[in-house]
Nucleic acid binder design. Structure first.
Ligand SMILES: [Mn+2]
Ligand SMILES: [Mn+2]
Ligand SMILES: [Mn+2]
Ligand SMILES: [Mn+2]
Lengths: 221, 221
DNA sequence: AATATAATTTAGTTTAACCTAAAAAAATAT
DNA sequence: ATATTTTTTTAGGTTAAACTAAATTATATT
């Protein structure tokens, strides 16, 4: 019944993001994600297991319970709503909001989030194209495939990013490769996996690294 | 150079609020304000003295330095800007925003606060009539005397509250005794110190307790 | 001035969240 | 199947921020 600490919330979020649905998540994976050590994870994971937020058996890794899932989703909901607020209302850029949202996501007040959601008019996607869970934890699934997997000579719309680092986001901004933009993939260069595309009627080349971290949605025409 | 912890910030804020400009503030006073114990205060105060945020000499109490002052003002600025946001934008009521602002005031990002201030159009007063310090720590001084000190047969405007408890604020709301309202003090009852006044052309009586916690500004006519 | 009371500090614990180093178990390679 | 490497856990230690109880200093009362 006791409210979760910021650390507990961060562990839950990490576990949620790392869980693929298959086997349990190892303490090393969690430690790496949180920039902490495996020994610390073992301790915390025992505590979270007692609170029924996950199941844990020695050496078997960790699996979030339903309660753990919904708790993590509530935190992610807060994170993404705040990011949306920071970009759409306060006019911060999409590369500087994540760190602030990492703090804001731990503010405790159901009413606050309800009111914020309404104030923002119930947004469905955050500034990086990630879906915002609603009050019940439901979210739309729009994000699609990597741009590097798209066949040449097809059109696509940019829907999200895989890498959320400020450096990457700033770079995309400079190249005008932002969420919602429509592009045409012309061809992929076999030598370095770079991609030639057309954006705003102008031809450009982007590196393999960028193509692999851009999510797009194929469109007809 | 290291950023302050939430605890350190709360101690600084308490010290700022308790400091009258005369003698040093005792550890008991601080402990009472923060719902902690004097022994804990002694410890923390030594740490804050090392960081040059206050001066401390054994048994002599504590006095904030200039650095301590400006740091406290920056936190208060954040608190009040957030309260203004919560009431004016999110439409929370003035009795439910303080606890949320207690959390939000510790979010670290200069840019965030700058942008929030601009988004809110640089408000000068928070929902309780308290002045919001600007970026440089400057704030207007409008709050005036206690309503219980006003002479009968004079007009006044409600400018603030001394008691910030939700119970008191809710009660004021119900009585329509909110910031900005103009009233006429008719007379003070010697028996129980209650005050008779006219609000919106209607006569009403308010208890000594209310009068003592309402701040007003005398006006002509 | 001596004594009682109150305020403050010191000493020693507790808890959460981290750490390192060593031990144990599991996975992988020979 | 055995040996090596990797992963995970355990044991023991650190730090920040709280606590209680006891000792000390300051203030108030007689
Ligand atoms: Mn983010
Ligand atoms: Mn995001
Ligand atoms: Mn407040
Ligand atoms: Mn206020």
């Amino acid at each position: 019944m006791h409210a979760l600490s910021i650390s507990e919330e961060n562990y839950l979020k990490a576990i949620f993001h790392l869980y693929t649905g298959e086997e349990g998540i190892g303490t090393n994976a969690i430690a790496h994600h949180l920039h902490t050590k495996a020994a610390s994870v073992t301790e915390m994971v025992k505590k979270l297991a007692e609170k029924k937020l996950l199941t844990y058996e020695k050496y078997q890794g960790v699996i979030p319970t339903r309660k753990g899932f919904t708790t993590a989703l509530a935190i992610i909901r807060k994170h993404r709503l705040w990011e949306y607020f920071l970009v759409e209302k306060l006019k911060l850029s999409w590369d500087e909001v994540h760190d602030i949202a990492e703090q804001l996501e731990h503010i405790k007040s159901d009413k606050l989030i309800e009111k914020l959601d309404r104030f923002l008019d119930f947004p469905k996607l955050d500034p990086h194209g990630d879906p915002i869970p609603d009050k019940a934890g439901k979210m739309c699934v729009t994000k699609c495939c990597c741009m590097s997997e798209i066949k040449p000579n097809s059109n696509a719309k940019i829907t999200g990013v895989k890498n959320h680092s400020p450096a990457f986001l700033k770079h995309l901004e400079k190249m005008h490769l932002t969420i919602g933009k429509t592009i045409k993939i012309v061809e992929r260069n076999d030598f370095d996996q770079s991609v030639q595309l057309v954006l705003n009627h102008e031809t450009m080349h982007i590196s393999k690294e960028i193509a692999e971290n851009l999510l797009v949605h194929k469109i007809k025409r």
